[in-house]
Design a protein around this nucleic acid. Structure first.
Lengths: 223, 223
DNA sequence: AAATAAATTTAGGCATAACTAAATTATATA
DNA sequence: TATATAATTTAGTTATGCCTAAATTTATTT
């Protein structure tokens, strides 16, 4: 059986592969908050288990088997996040840390029961897609809120889940996934965004906006 | 912070203290399925942390701090077992293994939310008492079913939770905690028990009966 | 193309928690 | 009381997974 650490490495490699493309030892080490030497060590073990492809100085790639493990852990994590919110009322800014520990520990049986309880959901509380039992993941094409221009309308698709304080802040504006809003004005010189959300005007700083991803509903330039 | 292994040792010392009285290295090792030398090693670490009292060749005792940790873990375990049964419908013969892993990992917040969801329960699905948030545990005085004589009526108080096959067997007779039954006949020469449960007569082997603990309702000898 | 800078790997250590084998202590028996 | 048996402890090993420091490889700059 795989150790929790090995599972975390595989999950991180998967996520970095999505985000950055090529996954180097250094990037992986930084992401996992370990030293590069530690990452090299674990990568070698994962290679011996045929879960990753690896040539020294050349970066890591997941094999099919490694990807399956990664998606399984990600599925656990996201199902758990949603379950904790829906079934136990845990605030959305706290579920990431909790799920981070539980994801390595729940059985397939409990996974299936949570899935059923939740009605076979496809997204977690932060809008991230939940892979199905077979590891199939539905990708949505969202753009960072910082790409929006004056007058554009959209729906929140996803927010980064790792910063608890940021999530509380975003939550205070009700900017949960599925929430619609319209950009009233983007302040010049990389300034903040004034948006209209359910009739209320609120100002969102650019740093915060970077962590909010949206699906566009209407683009007035194309009318 | 304590490691999972350390928590398991403290929990086991607590349980053995209840069951056997004095806890020797050997008994503890056998219970935890490790070699005696491993137990000695961990006991020394726990002593350094002031969680146990220990003199070599003299056995182990929990300090107040150690007992508090043990009860906290036992609370997690039993709340989780009940939660898994009630909220997710996990069969009662499977919850022990699941809880064994989860007990070390859930936060106090989740513990409190499960407790609330369950209505502040005092017993787990096997009838074992759940310590409250302050570590206060209500002991019930039950006797093994093997102590029963012909004609005695009683209610199931508790069954051992660790053997999954045994639990399925007990469950097949509906002998869940809270269930009433009457002893029709105890076969001579250490034989099996014939009982009347909800009008049905069933035969329970002595080995099984040893793992069922009951509270007496009526003793015809004392009428 | 050589020199410098950056990234990566190797080598050697540490802590945890298990193990085996040998030595020690305690207990029971003759 | 001496000895045999059983229990316990010590000593030394192994496997994880992290670390630091030094060596190596790759990439960039002049």
């Amino acid at each position: 059986m795989l150790t929790h650490a090995a599972e975390d490495y595989l999950k991180s490699i998967y996520k970095l592969q999505e985000k950055v493309g090529k996954v180097s030892t250094g990037i992986l080490a930084e992401y996992l908050d370990v030293k590069p030497a530690s990452a090299t060590g674990m990568i070698k073990k994962l290679k011996a288990m045929k879960l990753v492809r690896y040539e020294r100085y050349r970066g890591v790639t997941l094999t099919a088997a490694g990807k399956a493990v990664a998606l399984e852990i990600i599925r656990h994590h996201r199902l758990l996040e949603l379950y904790l919110v829906k079934a136990l009322g845990v605030p959305w800014d706290g579920v990431h840390e909790e799920a981070e520990k539980l994801e390595h520990v729940i059985s397939e049986d409990v996974e299936a029961r949570m899935d059923e309880f939740l009605g076979y959901p496809t997204a977690d509380p932060h809008g991230a897609p939940i892979p199905d039992k077979n590891g199939v993941l539905i990708q949505t094409d969202s753009v960072p809120m910082t790409d929006l221009k004056d007058g554009q309308s959209c729906v929140v698709a996803e927010v980064s889940d790792s910063d608890s304080a940021l999530l509380r802040h975003i939550g205070s504006f009700n900017l949960y996934p599925g929430t619609a809003f319209r950009v009233v004005e983007v302040a010049p010189f990389e300034g903040p965004f004034t948006i209209d959300i359910a009739g209320q005007e609120v100002v969102i700083g650019r740093e915060v906006a970077k962590h909010i991803f949206v699906e566009q509903v209407q683009d007035p330039d194309n009318v």
